[in-house]
Amino acid sequence: LRLEVKLGQGCFGEVWMGTWNGTTRVAIKTLKPGTMSPEAFLQEAQVMKKLRHEKLVQLYAVVSEEPIYIVTEYMSKGSLLDFLKGETGKYLRLPQLVDMAAQIASGMAYVERMNYVHRDLRAANILVGENLVCKVADFGLARLIEDNEYTARQGAKFPIKWTAPEAALYGRFTIKSDVWSFGILLTELTTKGRVPYPGMVNREVLDQVERGYRMPCPPECPESLHDLMCQCWRKEPEERPTFEYLQAFL
């Protein structure tokens, strides 16, 4: 395994491009020591290896001592969030954005069929390849993070704006909380990567959403798509659509 080009840095580690087995181009995620327990990670990795779908980033291998390494397929255009905010983002029109959403829903419909939960679905965790191919990455890892700023769910590192209220408040993460996050991801797509709930801080978002506030229809977004977002944001988790439905609708 060779680490060649550093692609990015996040709160919990770095991402590199490299070569595996001398020939395969891969992405390598390294986790800061202390982010998660190697034992817990190894268990999760076994499950992650079983998830194989064309719209999920394929896991190739893991190094399960500290520092933990995760070796996955390489996606040339990086994260969907950076892609939307970058040069190419300007030229993306609604049909392409909807197609990308459908690809993500397709990957998540598979996660749904496998009775698995992602827990951290957002544009930053979707990767883009050639020809606007989108794949879901980092599934299941969020559960293992041991950082206090994260586990408190009120901490600075927790993605509260993407998280369903029952998950943020009571830790009830299910495929239905993933559906909520998918609704937020749809706003990221239609606004080219704007942060959700602009002008609001995490605490406010939690309070307002509890009181029934939902983001309005983004500019140039059809009402039918906003309606779909609002279905994803129904207060009762069981009233939210399935990913199978979302995939078919898109």
Rank of each mutant, 00 (worst) to 15 (best):
H226S: 11
Q247L: 09
L42M: 06
A102G: 12
Q247K: 12
L81A: 15
L141Y: 04
A61I: 05
C232I: 08
R52L: 07
E238S: 12
S177V: 04
S181Y: 02
L250M: 14
Q46Y: 10
T191Y: 14
T24G: 15
V98N: 12
R2D: 08
E4I: 15
Q154A: 13
T174A: 11
R234I: 08
F173T: 05
C230R: 13
C232W: 02
R172F: 05
E244F: 10
K29A: 02
E236D: 10
E220R: 11
A45R: 03
G18K: 01
R93H: 07
T190A: 11
K192A: 08
K85F: 12
D138S: 00
G199V: 07
D138K: 03
L97T: 07
I70W: 00
A45V: 04
Y60M: 12
V47C: 09
L94V: 07
T35Q: 15
P222H: 05
Q43S: 06
Q46S: 10
L51A: 01
Q103I: 04
L225R: 00
G18H: 04
M75E: 07
V136N: 00
R194G: 09
P216W: 07
S37N: 03
L59I: 03
P33G: 11
Q58M: 10
K135I: 10
E239F: 15
E244G: 12
F173C: 10
I175S: 15
K50N: 11
V26I: 06
W20N: 14
V117Q: 00
I175F: 07
K49Q: 06
P196D: 01
V5N: 14
D178L: 02
G22Q: 10
E39G: 10
V201L: 08
Y60S: 09
C217A: 13
Q154H: 10
L84G: 03
C134L: 07
K55M: 10
R119N: 04
W16E: 15
E204L: 08
K176N: 14
Y245M: 12
F173N: 13
A142N: 00
H226L: 05
P67Q: 04
P33D: 15
T19W: 12
Y170E: 07
Q103K: 15
F243I: 15
I70K: 00
P219H: 12
P33S: 12
Q9V: 05
T151R: 07
R211E: 08
R211Q: 09
T242I: 14
P237R: 15
P67N: 05
S181I: 01
H226T: 08
L94K: 07
Q58R: 13
T190L: 06
E244K: 11
V128L: 06
N21S: 11
G13N: 02
L189P: 00
H226D: 10
K176S: 14
F249C: 06
I104A: 06
R214I: 12
W16A: 15
G212L: 05
L225V: 06
P216E: 09
R2A: 09
R214T: 12
L92S: 12
P218Y: 09
S79R: 03
R172T: 09
L250P: 05
M108S: 14
Y245I: 12
P198R: 05
G22A: 13
S106L: 13
G22V: 12
E112R: 15
L51W: 00
A45S: 06
T30H: 12
L189F: 11
P216I: 08
T23A: 09
I104P: 00
W233I: 01
K135N: 15
R25N: 13
K50Y: 12
